[in-house]
């Protein structure tokens, strides 16, 4: 497996109601590359935002089956949503990441 480059690790910040609540506990959530490891994520976040990461949790969001009707009675198309890997990064207390506060 080819080594991931650091800038490929983080894909985008996930700003949702739940994650905004977590940010009060210095936890910030990113969507990351499916192959990224916790160590890589830590390095990537520290490098990109100049903060100290104390903890990283990751999880894979499994694709959901999506079925869609086409042409009234003619049939249905089966498919699925894409899979996503999320990383919840805990920072040193009091540190913040700007992009979460300015979309």
């Amino acid at each position: 497996m080819a080594e991931l480059r650091l800038e490929e690790v983080l894909r985008r910040p996930m700003i949702t109601e739940k994650n905004t609540l977590l940010s009060e506990q210095d936890k910030f959530t990113f969507e990351v590359h499916p192959n990224a490891t916790k160590i890589m994520i830590k390095a990537a976040v520290e490098d990109a935002f100049g903060v100290n990461v104390t903890d990283v949790h990751t999880l894979n969001v499994k694709p959901k089956a999506k079925t869609r009707m086409i042409r009234r009675g003619a049939g249905r198309i089966h498919g699925s949503s894409r899979s996503v890997k999320k990383a919840i990064v805990t920072l040193k207390p009091g540190q913040r990441i700007d992009i979460f506060e300015q979309i």
């Binding site: 109601e17 905004t20 506060e101």
Partner: peptide, 12 residues
Amino acid sequence: PGFRKGKAPRHM
């Protein structure tokens, strides 16, 4: 997007 209606924080 990402928030229930009316639940987004003020600054957002």
